[in-house]
Design a protein around this nucleic acid. Sequence first.
DNA 1: GTAGGGTTAG
Length: 706
Amino acid sequence: MCSPSASLLVNPLNSNQHIHGELSVCQLATNSNLQDPASRFHRDMLRVLDSRQNMSPADHASSLPIERKKRPNLLTSDIDGVERVVSMLEHMVEIGVATEESFQIALEGLSNRGRLRWRRASDSAVVCAADEVEPLLKKLWDDKNGTVSTKTCNFALKAYAACSTPRGDRMYAQKAEAVVVKMQETGIDITSETLAHLVHAWAWQQENRDSGECVKRAQHYFDEMMKLSPDEDTVFRGYELLLEAWSKCSSSSAAESSERIFSKMKQLRGVNVGAQQYSNAILALAKQNGEENAEKANSLLLQMIDEYEASGYGESTRPELIAINGVIAAWSRCRRIDKSEEVLWLASDLGKTCEDIYPDVVTFNGVLHAYIRHRDRSKSLDKMIKIIDYMEANSKEHPVMKPDGFTYNTLLKAWVQSNRKDAVEEAEKVLFRMQEASGILPTSRHYNVVINALAKCRNPDAHKAYNLLRQLQALDSYTPDIITYTSVIECCSKSSDPHAAEIGLELFEEANDLYRGTGDKGIMPNLFSYTVTIRALSTNPTPENVRIARDLLEKLVATYAETLDDSLCPTTYPFNYVINCAANCVGSHDEKLRAFKIAAKTYNEIRSSEIIQPDSFTYAFWFKCCNNLLPEGDIRTKGLTFAFEQCKRSGLVSSEALRRLLAGTPSKLATSLLGIPFNTSPLVYRQYTLEDFPPGWSRNVRKDSN
DNA sequence: GTAGGGTTAG
């Protein structure tokens, strides 16, 4: 295979001067030296890009922060020809004619894609510009021993900045920073554009929320950029990005910093600061918690509207809906329904002079959120139903207010927490209505709200939950996840249905098989899934189910040991439930003894473990085991006596433990255990409560498990 | 720009 290095060193065109944003790509092509083997390719590459310029993806997603509100689309075709150009570059590299200019053409094209995503032809992985830029820059860097131009690096940085995202774990800001560090080490000029891209990348990076680490990095590179005396537009843009960074940070200084930056922007531009900057400042404030920030965002909104009116309704001062929606959300978060609605009326008013201001689905979702947080749940449910009826009724005429998945999720939650008798049935109706009224297919989240509501009932209908799950599976657009499965199994664990144990186990195994087949973490059984399955098995405590419960526990422990996955880290719960399952075992004398052995093994594991400790439930279930599974006699006496000593010493004698200890215990044994004369005839022992015994016995019993 | 699915018991 040919090495491209030789040709890269030639670099016949001083390419840095040839790629200029202002120049049309066609001009560039004609300027190229046609004698050069690379220039024929360059001309073709530029022609590909140029011929599709009308279909530029810039309309789909720009790298401007304010336009990030649009989720990045997944391209279905090579809309601007960049993928073609990249494969042309790969071909040039292969035949050894690629120059730095070749790389620049591809990098620039990629960076112009902004944050769009597409499927890579070679492996159909979903990628974005930043993913594709990385290997290209590395290749060029290695081939040229780091003698790469600033311009080339800046194209790559632009792609990292545009693709940087608060979601996921892509860490493009770190990657961009690594490029700049290498530039510094190699002596490549750092321009204000270089630093502006870094500010941009950090401003959009995730995990900014708590520590504010990313906003610090953004501020740092902004300060560095200022040392290079950039032009006013770059400074202003830098402020915009800092505002963006603060808006995603929950640090206590965020509101203050946002205000400071906004006033600097006003200093720069005066009243011409523009509606977009108002929106940014409002959103930054609106994202912070606390009424005072909602109030500040609200007053900025009023200022913005004032300036719109003062300017005679000028285009650049026209308020944006996004700012109004932000303020509504801020008031909703502090349960200020009155204020949320006030802003809603304001928006309706504004709509008279400003036709693009019309309450949309986000506006209403914000108001709905205020209601769902309100204390009077029944009253707010009625109000929410009215609002959603209104949205549905008007969505033909005003498609922007058509309810979406958020809307119905909020409604489902409202029904579920309404405490009304028919809550679950009504929630189920919503699942159907959302499809009919708004054409929105319920997702696993919607179903999970309802299934979980079923699981929280006193005597849940396991079959109904099971059917809902199957219904969700029948929709090919969505698959149930582990929360769906676990919630249905939880229904089984609380159900009196004779098949509940069987269904619970079937579902657990199904989820586990799905996980093993797909490796999809979303369907991976976790500690809670194991625990409720074991609990479901004790609704039908056959000797076989006791054994299966124990097997599940062992599988949990082994899987945790193997993966060290936090979501599988065992607690006392599943151990206790295995003991309880054994304690309930119905069967022959021998079968009961086998169940007892399983319980004893489990009980001893809890006591000797370094991670988990016995609790009052452990002892209560253990006493139940001794009394239910062992014949009266020495072994039972020993098991009870020894355990009760432990139980007292640990201060874990709950009233239930006491009851289980004495249920079925002969008076003589009870007397010796408790140290006071004791008659276990039911009529007598019920007169005793924990208060009749030393308080130390129950000093560690949690309140909720007295 | 919104909100956001389960953590248990006798």
